[in-house]
């Protein structure tokens, strides 16, 4: 097995200060290997986007602050890297794709210029060559008539085309790792599948690792090799996609699975939602954060916070209960 491209250890991110301090990400650890797709799953506010931003130290500071942990990229701790060296990694060796294709391209510049920018920025090519390459990349992400479209402004692109352009931009420098933060949330379903397949194929071509942040379990099942389930800023279960789907071990994961509509269920049958609300991050319980909504909750869950423990191999969960019954 290859050594991991990225290894995150005990990452913690806080927002605000004093009494209003909120720990958005707490003790998160995971790793990704070359060619692997890791999905980080969770509902809104579970800390998945903040985790993604903190990998490249893009958490807005203040109010945010990465307060603990290590982010090892090929063994180098990004949290200790100088501003100049992290800049040389951003977009060059680790690229990011954002969730809103509508606003993640600059409206004042042509698409081609923006795709060429990282190439020129990291000193790989001159402007003229970078622009030539931008045209090839647009073709590669299957935008028809790339030669003409390269001179178009973002407002002349549809949502799906813009996300393709973002992918072209992310792939420009052939990064070792691509972080895609809900890349298809704003797109309609048919376009979603196209974009994700494209992303998956292109990363396979370059053997890049892909971190896919999503709340869509359908996406996870189809594209991820490994999965991290996050709840209230913590990883509650992680393992291979196979482990998570065939043998979910955390009550929250079980709840998520049960709440997916299925084609083979009887018509008129109601979905099973997870009762209650996600917790307020500013006032987390002392014990397990999922305890108030958990149907397996025990007295111990209120007192102690369960740690991530191996369930055999690379399948981990943070729960005391026996959920197999």
């Amino acid at each position: 097995m290859h050594s991991p491209v990225l290894e995150v250890k005990n990452l913690a991110v806080e927002f605000g200060s004093g009494a209003g301090r909120v720990r958005a990400v707490d003790d998160v650890s995971f790793d990704v290997r070359p060619g692997e797709t890791l999905a980080i799953v969770g509902e809104s506010g579970s800390g998945k986007s903040v985790t993604a931003l903190s990998l490249l130290r893009l958490v807005p500071t203040p109010p945010g602050r990465i307060c603990a942990g290590e982010i090892l990229f090929h063994g180098e701790d990004l949290l200790k890297a100088s501003e100049a060296s992290i800049r040389s990694i951003r977009g060059n060796r680790i690229a990011m794709i954002f969730q809103e294709p509508m606003s993640s391209l600059n409206p004042a510049l042509t698409v081609g210029l923006q795709i060429a920018e990282p190439l020129q920025l990291h000193g790989k090519l001159t402007w003229a060559k970078a622009f030539e390459r931008a045209r090839e990349l647009l073709g590669k992400v299957r935008i028809p008539d790339a030669a003409r479209r390269v001179n178009a402004h973002p407002h002349q692109f549809s949502g799906g085309m813009r996300q393709r352009a973002m992918i072209a931009m992310a792939l420009a420098c052939k990064p070792n790792l691509i972080i895609a933060d809900e890349p298809t949330t704003a797109l309609d379903v048919t376009v979603q599948a196209q974009i994700l397949s494209l992303l998956k194929n292109l990363t396979k071509e370059t053997n890049a690792a892909l971190i896919l942040i999503t709340h869509d379990l359908g996406v996870v099942a189809r594209y991820a090799d490994r999965v991290c389930v996050m709840y209230a800023g913590r990883v509650v279960e992680s393992g291979s996609a196979q482990d998570i789907y065939a043998n979910p071990q955390h009550p929250y994961t079980l709840g998520l699975m049960a709440s997916i509509p299925r084609l083979d269920q009887e018509a008129g049958q109601r979905l099973t939602p997870i009762d209650g609300q996600p917790p307020d991050l500013a006032a987390l319980p002392k014990g397990c954060a999922f305890e108030p909504r958990c149907r397996f909750a025990m007295a111990r869950c209120r007192r102690e916070r369960p740690a991530l423990e191996s369930q055999g191999g690379r399948h981990y969960r943070a729960c005391f209960a026996d959920v197999s019954c």
């Binding site: 931003l53 490249l56 893009l58 800049r87 040389s88 990694i89 951003r90 977009g91 060059n92 690229a95 990011m96 954002f98 809103e100 606003s103 993640s104 391209l105 600059n106 409206p107 004042a108 510049l109 920018e117 990282p118 920025l121 990291h122 973002m166 931009m169």
Partner: peptide, 28 residues
């Protein structure tokens, strides 16, 4: 506050470059 500013940052652009290439044209 626009996403493209964060996106540009994630590409490794310096503050100076963000100001001149990405902010300035949009406040023209």
């Amino acid at each position: 506050e626009n996403m493209y500013v964060t996106a540009t940052q994630s590409m490794g652009a310096s503050t100076f470059r963000i100001l001149f290439r990405h902010i300035l044209p949009n406040v023209m």
